[in-house]
Structure formats: structure tokens, C-alpha cells
Design a protein around this nucleic acid. Structure first.
Lengths: 217, 217
DNA sequence: GTCTACCATGAACACCTGTTCGATGTCAAG
DNA sequence: CTTGACATCGAACAGGTGTTCATGGTAGAC
């Protein structure tokens, strides 16, 4: 069931309001923003959104609105403090990293998301997350269960931490990228380990690592 | 400048309310919680907290309250989806980890904070962050520049990743804790490395690692 | 003692706010 | 054409809510 333009606008305004002020808007504030003169109509749409499970309402409570998790991805993030990233798959040494195209992003359901603050991941465009499988990445100081946040790209600058597919080894590796003397030096994050050198055309850059998150429990 | 018990309680309640409902409380709700019968007294304390720059108020607006960044670490429950953590110091092998007492929390200014979502750090109480100095922690898959999120504690359960001070070595180490056969096995996160064994009374647990964050750029 | 800062009460007021009701218009389905 | 679902308006009401005022108690400073 799709939303009408009105309802989408109301949802967006609620999100923006919480974002900006730290609390939800009143019925009249909503009406003013979306251009509805009567409080009863806003109330009407609010109940509609509630039926769609996009909104929770606390009866008789001023500003008693809350966006449900279901509504979160449909709301204009705007200048939010957090970024929601899809976890599109897993990463391990023997397999290429999954790419994120428009389709996979859409198919990702809410269970497979992680949100992080912009302090940790400043950009949100073409950024996605991968769960680390196995312990084949310990030379990158990354272990089973870690979340790797990647930015999709096929090029890299010197010093970038990249996910690279080494063709002749049929192997994915996470290393710092340095293009020097016509070849590429891949430097492990672990300073006690030696770099490897590969030819440029033997390398396929699949993304740039922009953060690693390890959540113990 | 210290807060009175009343004011701390009000601040806590505002945080808890935002946490629980998604919006701040009204003056009367605050009064009811902290045991103040008159709205004017609550108003009085609110203005006091505003003068201390712990609170922002939107005049004439119901529930027009917002905790400032300065207030965040002093509040029991953080603000909704994110937790702000003070970065109270650095961690390296040769030094004990700094402890977070009430004083350091107060002295921390806003620059030395990091906020993370509750998905990554569920609790907020007695939790703080340390910046990793040097590469002496690579056996814990942790490197220079990483942020380690710790929970202050002096005890640990089996399997916890702890920051431990080994007395006779005068060394801090991050390892998984296993109490077995009257001694303690400290297991490195790197599965290719061997555990070390220490006597219980040679060990001082300084905190529990609950997350590691590496933000590249 | 007197003064001042602080904390508290209770009441009153005006505006804010959610709720409800009756009426109207539109538009696709039957 | 009639019907029903949907969307909108305007108005009214009751209770919620921030603000203000007069009053007074307590405790430490001078």
C-alpha cells in the first residue's frame, strides 16, 4: 500500500521536526506545514498512518507521536545525526565482496541494517556494510563478526584502505593501497606483516573501507 | 558547580522520558516524578538547569526541552537512539587505562566526545571511550587510532573481553577472560596467537571492552 | 539579629492541544 | 444515478500546559 503525497509529507515533517527540535510536532504544527487548515484532517491522516503501522500515537498526550522502525527508511533523513546502512552480505578471503546495486539496496529488509552516527561514517552515499565471516582477515586487524563499512568505488588513492580482488590468487583482501613504480603495493594494517606487490591489471578494487565496527557483548 | 539531587533527578527523568517515549516530559510530568507538587518549582529548576547550559528550553512550547551535549554524559539514559561517550584518555600497553570517575566526566569538554548508536553500544552507564596509542595492541586486533569503548568494572565473566593490568609485568592488555582451574587464561582475539596464564591475584580488571570502532578517512 | 540565596507551595490565567461532530465535495464502482 | 470510501473544512469543548504571582520556610553569611 502506497502513501499519498500528503501522508508522505506528514511523515517527513514529523521526522524533520524530531530531528530539528528534539520532539515531535503538534497536530496544528503539522497542519500548518503540509497546508491543512483543520486539525481534524491532520488527526484523520495521523490515524491512517497509525493503521499502516508507520506511527505510534499516545492518546491525549501533546506531541505524542513516534515513528516506528518501519517508517524510518521512508522518511527524508535530512540532516540526521545517524546514517542507516544496509548490510548487503558477508566478506571473506575466498570470495569477491558483494556489490551494492540499486536492487540489493531495495531488497534489503530492516533486519539487515545498521545505523551509525555521522561522526563515524560522514558520507551516506553508496555506502554499505558487510559482516565479516571467518578469520581470514586478521592481517587487516579484522575478525569474525566485525562489521566493515565500505564505500563503493573502483578507484583508490594512495593510503586508502581498499577491498581488492587479486585475480590470479582468486582472493579478496583488505589492505592499504599504494600505487608506486607502475605496480601496486598492498600494505597490511598489521605493521608486523610485510606488504605484497601486484601488477595493476591483476587487481580489481571493489570498494574503500571507511570504518570497522566491532560490537562485543 | 555541582547539581543538587533534585536537579540531577530532573535531568535523569528528562533523559529517561525521551528515551522511553520519544519526546520530553511536560513540567507537570517532571513534578510528579521527582516529587514536586508545584509547577512553578519545576519551572524554577528548569531555568536553573538552563543557566547551567545543561538544558535548552523553547518558550511557550509544550515539552520544549532539549538536553545539551554537555548534559548528555551526566544523564542516566542517553538521548534516544544514540549514546554520547566521553573520550577520557588513551590506552597503551605500558600504562594502566584511565578510570572514569565523576570528576573526569565533568571536566570532559565537548570536543572529546564520540556518539554511537545504541545498536553498537546498548548501555550508557559507566561507559566511556579510549583512543588507542601505538601498535602494542595488535594482538587484540586493535591498532593506533582506534576507539575502544569500555564499561567500567572490576569483575568479569568468562568470555568477556577485558582490559586487564598484569601486576608483575606492569602491562595493560586486552584479552578474553576465562577463569579456569584457579588461574586465569587470557586469550588473544587473534586466533593464531597463544593464550597467557596468570594467577588471579596478579590481575586487576580495569574494564570490559564492549566495542571497537575504527574510522578511516 | 538581619539579610540573602535557595527551595517550596498553591492558585490563577491564558493559551495550547487533542478530540469530536456535522457538513461538504470528489471520484471510482456498482 | 446511487453508493460508499476518501478527503477536507470549520467550529466547539475539555483538559493539558507554560507562565506568573504572592507567600513562606530554611540555612548560611555578615
Amino acid at each position: 500500500m502506497a502513501l499519498t503525497e500528503r501522508q508522505q509529507k506528514i511523515l517527513d515533517f514529523i521526522g524533520a521536526s524530531i530531528d530539528k527540535h528534539g520532539y515531535p510536532p503538534t497536530i496544528r504544527e503539522i497542519g500548518k506545514d503540509v497546508g491543512i487548515s483543520s486539525t481534524s484532517v491532520v488527526n484523520y491522516h495521523l490515524n491512517k498512518l497509525k493503521d499502516l503501522e508507520l506511527l505510534e500515537r499516545d492518546d491525549q498526550i501533546s506531541r505524542g507521536l513516534k515513528l516506528t522502525a518501519k517508517a524510518r527508511p521512508m522518511v527524508d533523513a535530512g540532516n540526521g545525526a545517524t546514517v542507516s546502512l544496509p548490510i548487503v552480505g558477508t566478506i571473506q578471503a575466498g570470495l569477491p565482496v558483494p556489490v551494492m546495486d540499486a536492487r540489493t539496496a531495495f531488497e534489503t529488509d530492516e533486519q539487515d541494517m545498521i545505523s551509525v552516527t555521522r561522526e563515524i561514517v560522514p558520507r551516506g552515499d553508496k555506502v554499505y556494510a558487510l559482516r565479516v565471516k571467518g578469520d581470514s582477515m586478521i592481517d587487516a586487524l579484522i575478525n569474525e563478526g566485525d562489521i566493515v563499512v565500505m564505500q563503493s568505488t573502483h578507484t583508490a588513492s594512495n593510503g586508502d584502505m581498499v577491498a581488492a580482488w587479486i585475480k590470479d590468487r582468486e582472493e579478496t583482501t583488505l589492505k592499504r593501497f599504494y600505487h608506486e613504480n607502475g605496480r601496486v603495493r598492498l600494505q597490511p594494517a598489521n605493521p608486523t606483516m610485510d606488504p605484497i606487490y601486484v601488477a595493476l591489471d591483476n587487481l580489481e578494487i571493489q570498494g574503500k573501507v571507511i570504518a570497522v565496527i566491532r560490537s562485543l557483548n
